[in-house]
Design a protein around this nucleic acid. Sequence first.
DNA 1: GTCCAGGTTCACG
DNA 2: CGTGAACATGGA
Length: 301
Amino acid sequence: MVSAEPIAEHRRRLSVRNYDLAATLDSGQAFRWKPQDAAWTGVIGHHWVRLTRTSDGILAEAPADPGDWRWLEDYLQSDVDLQTILDQLPGDPPLREAIRQHPGLRLLRQDPWECLASFILSSTKQIRHIKQIVETLCSRHGTAVTTPAGTATAFAFPAAARIASLDEPALRSVGMGFRAPYLLEAARRVSSGRLDLVGLKRCPLPEARAALMNLPGVGRKIADCVLLFALGFTEAFPVDVWVMRTLQSAWFPDRKMILRELVSFSEQHFGPYGGYAQQYLFHHARTGAPAGAPPHHDPAG
DNA sequence: GTCCAGGTTCACG
DNA sequence: CGTGAACATGGA
Protein backbone atom coordinates (compact mmCIF):
# COMPACT_ATOMS: atom_id res chain seq x y z
CA MET A 1 0.00 0.00 0.00
CA VAL A 2 1.41 3.37 -1.02
CA SER A 3 1.31 5.94 1.74
CA ALA A 4 0.95 9.45 0.37
CA GLU A 5 -1.34 9.04 -2.58
CA PRO A 6 -0.03 10.94 -5.59
CA ILE A 7 -2.44 13.69 -6.13
CA ALA A 8 -5.27 14.28 -8.47
CA GLU A 9 -4.81 15.96 -11.80
CA HIS A 10 -6.76 19.09 -11.10
CA ARG A 11 -5.04 21.71 -9.02
CA ARG A 12 -5.63 25.27 -7.98
CA ARG A 13 -3.55 27.62 -5.92
CA LEU A 14 -5.40 30.22 -3.92
CA SER A 15 -3.31 33.18 -2.96
CA VAL A 16 -4.20 34.15 0.59
CA ARG A 17 -2.35 35.34 3.66
CA ASN A 18 -3.26 34.64 7.23
CA TYR A 19 -5.34 31.50 6.73
CA ASP A 20 -5.14 28.75 9.37
CA LEU A 21 -6.67 25.75 7.65
CA ALA A 22 -6.63 23.53 10.71
CA ALA A 23 -8.28 26.07 12.98
CA THR A 24 -10.83 26.98 10.33
CA LEU A 25 -11.79 23.50 9.22
CA ASP A 26 -11.72 21.94 12.67
CA SER A 27 -13.24 24.58 14.91
CA GLY A 28 -16.77 23.24 15.01
CA GLN A 29 -18.16 25.15 12.02
CA ALA A 30 -18.06 22.19 9.65
CA PHE A 31 -18.00 18.54 10.59
CA ARG A 32 -16.66 16.64 7.61
CA TRP A 33 -12.98 17.54 7.32
CA LYS A 34 -10.31 14.95 7.97
CA PRO A 35 -6.60 15.52 8.52
CA GLN A 36 -4.43 13.61 6.06
CA ASP A 37 -0.71 14.01 6.50
CA ALA A 38 -0.21 17.76 6.28
CA ALA A 39 -3.44 18.25 4.37
CA TRP A 40 -7.19 18.25 4.92
CA THR A 41 -9.65 16.26 2.85
CA GLY A 42 -13.35 16.75 2.60
CA VAL A 43 -16.41 17.07 0.39
CA ILE A 44 -17.87 20.42 -0.62
CA GLY A 45 -21.14 19.97 -2.44
CA HIS A 46 -20.32 17.12 -4.83
CA HIS A 47 -16.61 17.89 -4.97
CA TRP A 48 -14.05 15.84 -3.11
CA VAL A 49 -11.09 18.09 -2.42
CA ARG A 50 -7.76 18.02 -0.64
CA LEU A 51 -6.38 21.23 0.82
CA THR A 52 -2.80 22.00 1.80
CA ARG A 53 -1.39 25.18 3.28
CA THR A 54 1.48 26.58 1.22
CA SER A 55 3.82 29.47 1.89
CA ASP A 56 1.68 31.92 -0.03
CA GLY A 57 -1.78 30.42 0.11
CA ILE A 58 -3.73 27.21 -0.22
CA LEU A 59 -3.21 24.36 -2.67
CA ALA A 60 -6.41 22.60 -3.69
CA GLU A 61 -6.44 19.25 -5.46
CA ALA A 62 -9.48 17.55 -6.96
CA PRO A 63 -9.89 14.21 -8.73
CA ALA A 64 -12.60 15.38 -11.13
CA ASP A 65 -13.00 18.49 -13.22
CA PRO A 66 -13.79 21.16 -10.66
CA GLY A 67 -14.96 23.76 -13.15
CA ASP A 68 -13.98 27.31 -12.30
CA TRP A 69 -13.21 26.62 -8.62
CA ARG A 70 -15.51 29.42 -7.54
CA TRP A 71 -17.35 26.96 -5.29
CA LEU A 72 -14.12 26.53 -3.35
CA GLU A 73 -13.22 30.20 -3.05
CA ASP A 74 -16.74 30.92 -1.89
CA TYR A 75 -16.65 28.12 0.67
CA LEU A 76 -13.26 29.09 2.07
CA GLN A 77 -13.97 32.83 1.89
CA SER A 78 -10.38 33.20 0.78
CA ASP A 79 -11.01 36.64 -0.70
CA VAL A 80 -12.09 38.04 2.65
CA ASP A 81 -9.73 40.64 4.06
CA LEU A 82 -9.45 39.26 7.57
CA GLN A 83 -7.37 42.10 8.98
CA THR A 84 -10.01 44.65 8.09
CA ILE A 85 -12.55 42.60 10.00
CA LEU A 86 -10.33 42.16 13.03
CA ASP A 87 -9.74 45.91 13.09
CA GLN A 88 -13.47 46.44 13.52
CA LEU A 89 -13.88 44.12 16.48
CA PRO A 90 -13.82 45.52 20.02
CA GLY A 91 -10.48 45.74 21.79
CA ASP A 92 -11.55 43.75 24.84
CA PRO A 93 -8.46 41.94 26.18
CA PRO A 94 -10.10 38.49 26.37
CA LEU A 95 -11.10 38.75 22.71
CA ARG A 96 -7.71 40.06 21.60
CA GLU A 97 -6.02 37.19 23.42
CA ALA A 98 -8.24 34.66 21.65
CA ILE A 99 -7.40 36.25 18.30
CA ARG A 100 -3.70 36.27 19.15
CA GLN A 101 -3.83 32.53 19.80
CA HIS A 102 -5.34 31.70 16.39
CA PRO A 103 -4.67 34.65 14.08
CA GLY A 104 -5.62 32.80 10.91
CA LEU A 105 -8.96 31.43 12.04
CA ARG A 106 -11.61 32.19 9.41
CA LEU A 107 -15.31 31.74 8.89
CA LEU A 108 -16.47 29.44 6.10
CA ARG A 109 -19.48 29.97 3.84
CA GLN A 110 -21.26 26.62 3.85
CA ASP A 111 -24.21 25.15 2.05
CA PRO A 112 -27.32 26.26 3.97
CA TRP A 113 -29.04 22.89 4.02
CA GLU A 114 -25.98 20.96 5.15
CA CYS A 115 -25.31 23.59 7.79
CA LEU A 116 -28.87 23.61 9.10
CA ALA A 117 -29.09 19.82 9.17
CA SER A 118 -25.72 19.46 10.86
CA PHE A 119 -26.54 21.92 13.61
CA ILE A 120 -29.97 20.39 14.19
CA LEU A 121 -27.95 17.27 15.01
CA SER A 122 -25.57 19.21 17.26
CA SER A 123 -27.69 19.93 20.31
CA THR A 124 -26.14 18.55 23.49
CA LYS A 125 -23.65 16.54 21.48
CA GLN A 126 -19.89 16.62 21.57
CA ILE A 127 -18.31 17.73 18.30
CA ARG A 128 -16.69 14.33 18.04
CA HIS A 129 -20.08 12.68 18.07
CA ILE A 130 -21.69 15.20 15.72
CA LYS A 131 -19.02 14.27 13.20
CA GLN A 132 -19.82 10.59 13.66
CA ILE A 133 -23.52 11.08 13.07
CA VAL A 134 -22.96 13.28 10.02
CA GLU A 135 -20.54 10.74 8.59
CA THR A 136 -23.03 7.91 9.04
CA LEU A 137 -25.80 9.99 7.53
CA CYS A 138 -23.68 10.76 4.46
CA SER A 139 -22.38 7.26 3.90
CA ARG A 140 -25.85 5.75 4.19
CA HIS A 141 -27.89 8.32 2.32
CA GLY A 142 -25.55 10.58 0.37
CA THR A 143 -24.55 9.99 -3.24
CA ALA A 144 -20.99 8.90 -3.93
CA VAL A 145 -18.58 11.48 -5.29
CA THR A 146 -15.46 10.98 -7.38
CA THR A 147 -12.37 10.37 -5.27
CA PRO A 148 -8.72 9.89 -6.23
CA ALA A 149 -7.60 6.34 -7.00
CA GLY A 150 -6.79 4.51 -3.82
CA THR A 151 -8.90 6.80 -1.68
CA ALA A 152 -11.91 5.53 0.20
CA THR A 153 -15.33 6.22 -1.24
CA ALA A 154 -16.71 9.58 -0.18
CA PHE A 155 -20.27 10.85 -0.16
CA ALA A 156 -22.03 14.13 -0.61
CA PHE A 157 -24.22 15.41 2.18
CA PRO A 158 -27.73 14.02 1.50
CA ALA A 159 -30.08 16.49 -0.14
CA ALA A 160 -33.12 17.62 1.82
CA ALA A 161 -35.36 15.66 -0.56
CA ARG A 162 -33.47 12.50 0.23
CA ILE A 163 -33.82 12.95 3.98
CA ALA A 164 -37.48 13.82 3.52
CA SER A 165 -38.01 10.49 1.78
CA LEU A 166 -36.92 8.62 4.90
CA ASP A 167 -38.91 7.97 8.06
CA GLU A 168 -38.12 8.61 11.69
CA PRO A 169 -36.91 5.09 12.55
CA ALA A 170 -34.49 5.18 9.62
CA LEU A 171 -33.05 8.42 10.92
CA ARG A 172 -32.91 7.20 14.51
CA SER A 173 -30.89 4.22 13.35
CA VAL A 174 -28.22 6.69 12.29
CA GLY A 175 -27.77 7.50 15.98
CA MET A 176 -29.27 10.97 16.17
CA GLY A 177 -31.77 10.09 18.88
CA PHE A 178 -34.49 12.63 19.69
CA ARG A 179 -33.20 14.93 16.94
CA ALA A 180 -34.60 12.61 14.24
CA PRO A 181 -38.07 14.18 14.02
CA TYR A 182 -36.49 17.64 13.97
CA LEU A 183 -34.26 16.78 11.03
CA LEU A 184 -37.11 15.08 9.22
CA GLU A 185 -39.40 18.08 9.54
CA ALA A 186 -36.67 20.47 8.40
CA ALA A 187 -36.01 18.26 5.38
CA ARG A 188 -39.70 18.24 4.51
CA ARG A 189 -40.06 21.99 4.70
CA VAL A 190 -36.91 22.67 2.72
CA SER A 191 -37.53 20.09 0.01
CA SER A 192 -41.15 21.16 -0.38
CA GLY A 193 -40.18 24.80 -0.74
CA ARG A 194 -42.10 25.88 2.34
CA LEU A 195 -38.76 27.07 3.71
CA ASP A 196 -36.50 28.80 1.19
CA LEU A 197 -33.13 28.72 2.90
CA VAL A 198 -31.18 30.48 0.16
CA GLY A 199 -33.84 33.16 -0.05
CA LEU A 200 -33.17 34.03 3.60
CA LYS A 201 -29.87 35.57 2.53
CA ARG A 202 -31.81 38.53 1.21
CA CYS A 203 -34.00 38.97 4.30
CA PRO A 204 -33.23 41.27 7.19
CA LEU A 205 -31.49 39.31 9.93
CA PRO A 206 -34.40 39.25 12.40
CA GLU A 207 -36.70 37.92 9.72
CA ALA A 208 -34.25 35.22 8.61
CA ARG A 209 -33.65 34.23 12.22
CA ALA A 210 -37.37 33.99 12.93
CA ALA A 211 -37.90 31.82 9.86
CA LEU A 212 -35.24 29.40 11.07
CA MET A 213 -36.53 29.37 14.64
CA ASN A 214 -39.92 28.45 13.28
CA LEU A 215 -38.49 24.97 12.76
CA PRO A 216 -38.94 22.53 15.63
CA GLY A 217 -35.62 21.84 17.29
CA VAL A 218 -34.15 25.13 16.11
CA GLY A 219 -33.76 27.82 18.74
CA ARG A 220 -31.71 30.99 18.83
CA LYS A 221 -28.33 29.27 19.00
CA ILE A 222 -28.78 26.88 16.07
CA ALA A 223 -30.47 29.61 14.03
CA ASP A 224 -27.49 31.89 14.58
CA CYS A 225 -25.10 29.15 13.52
CA VAL A 226 -26.88 28.87 10.18
CA LEU A 227 -27.09 32.64 9.80
CA LEU A 228 -23.36 32.94 10.45
CA PHE A 229 -21.86 29.85 8.84
CA ALA A 230 -24.06 29.60 5.75
CA LEU A 231 -26.18 32.67 5.09
CA GLY A 232 -23.55 35.38 5.38
CA PHE A 233 -24.81 37.23 8.46
CA THR A 234 -21.45 38.05 10.03
CA GLU A 235 -23.12 39.83 12.94
CA ALA A 236 -24.86 36.64 14.12
CA PHE A 237 -23.37 35.51 17.42
CA PRO A 238 -24.29 31.96 18.49
CA VAL A 239 -24.07 31.61 22.27
CA ASP A 240 -23.44 28.02 23.22
CA VAL A 241 -22.26 26.63 26.53
CA TRP A 242 -18.59 27.41 25.78
CA VAL A 243 -19.15 31.00 24.70
CA MET A 244 -21.55 31.48 27.59
CA ARG A 245 -18.89 30.38 30.08
CA THR A 246 -16.33 32.67 28.46
CA LEU A 247 -18.61 35.70 28.47
CA GLN A 248 -19.59 35.05 32.05
CA SER A 249 -16.08 34.57 33.40
CA ALA A 250 -14.18 37.09 31.28
CA TRP A 251 -16.71 39.88 30.83
CA PHE A 252 -18.93 39.60 33.92
CA PRO A 253 -16.84 37.92 36.62
CA ASP A 254 -18.70 39.71 39.40
CA ARG A 255 -22.31 39.21 38.41
CA LYS A 256 -24.12 36.00 37.56
CA MET A 257 -25.63 36.44 34.09
CA ILE A 258 -28.38 34.34 32.59
CA LEU A 259 -28.25 33.20 28.99
CA ARG A 260 -30.71 35.78 27.72
CA GLU A 261 -28.64 38.60 29.19
CA LEU A 262 -25.46 37.32 27.57
CA VAL A 263 -27.19 36.97 24.20
CA SER A 264 -28.47 40.51 24.50
CA PHE A 265 -25.04 41.80 25.50
CA SER A 266 -23.23 40.06 22.65
CA GLU A 267 -25.80 41.34 20.18
CA GLN A 268 -25.18 44.96 21.01
CA HIS A 269 -21.50 44.75 21.92
CA PHE A 270 -19.57 42.90 19.22
CA GLY A 271 -20.82 44.72 16.14
CA PRO A 272 -21.26 43.84 12.46
CA TYR A 273 -18.54 41.16 12.55
CA GLY A 274 -19.48 39.75 15.94
CA GLY A 275 -19.68 36.27 14.47
CA TYR A 276 -15.94 36.32 13.97
CA ALA A 277 -15.42 37.34 17.58
CA GLN A 278 -17.65 34.49 18.63
CA GLN A 279 -15.63 31.97 16.62
CA TYR A 280 -12.34 33.11 18.15
CA LEU A 281 -13.80 32.91 21.64
CA PHE A 282 -15.31 29.50 20.99
CA HIS A 283 -12.15 28.03 19.51
CA HIS A 284 -9.95 29.55 22.17
CA ALA A 285 -12.16 28.19 24.92
CA ARG A 286 -12.05 24.72 23.43
CA THR A 287 -8.36 24.58 22.65
CA GLY A 288 -6.45 26.43 25.32
CA ALA A 289 -8.72 27.85 27.91
CA PRO A 290 -7.22 28.24 31.32
CA ALA A 291 -10.24 29.62 33.18
CA GLY A 292 -13.85 28.59 33.23
CA ALA A 293 -13.41 25.51 31.13
CA PRO A 294 -14.29 22.11 32.48
CA PRO A 295 -11.42 19.70 33.10
CA HIS A 296 -10.18 17.06 30.67
CA HIS A 297 -11.57 17.67 27.25
CA ASP A 298 -10.01 16.63 23.97
CA PRO A 299 -10.11 19.61 21.63
CA ALA A 300 -9.41 17.43 18.64
CA GLY A 301 -13.07 16.59 18.90
C1' DG B 1 -22.11 3.97 37.47
C1' DT B 2 -22.00 9.16 36.75
C1' DC B 3 -21.54 13.24 34.17
C1' DC B 4 -21.50 16.05 30.18
C1' DA B 5 -21.98 17.27 25.35
C1' DG B 6 -21.69 24.04 19.90
C1' DG B 7 -29.93 23.15 22.89
C1' DT B 8 -34.70 23.01 22.64
C1' DT B 9 -39.05 21.98 24.32
C1' DC B 10 -42.46 21.26 27.69
C1' DA B 11 -44.49 21.15 32.21
C1' DC B 12 -44.92 23.24 36.34
C1' DG B 13 -45.24 27.22 40.12
C1' DC C 1 -42.89 34.82 33.10
C1' DG C 2 -38.97 32.15 35.05
C1' DT C 3 -37.04 27.67 36.27
C1' DG C 4 -36.02 22.78 35.83
C1' DA C 5 -36.52 18.18 33.82
C1' DA C 6 -36.70 15.36 29.67
C1' DC C 7 -34.90 14.20 25.48
C1' DA C 8 -30.99 9.71 22.95
C1' DT C 9 -26.47 8.48 22.62
C1' DG C 10 -21.61 7.83 23.38
C1' DG C 11 -17.21 8.97 25.39
C1' DA C 12 -14.42 10.38 29.44
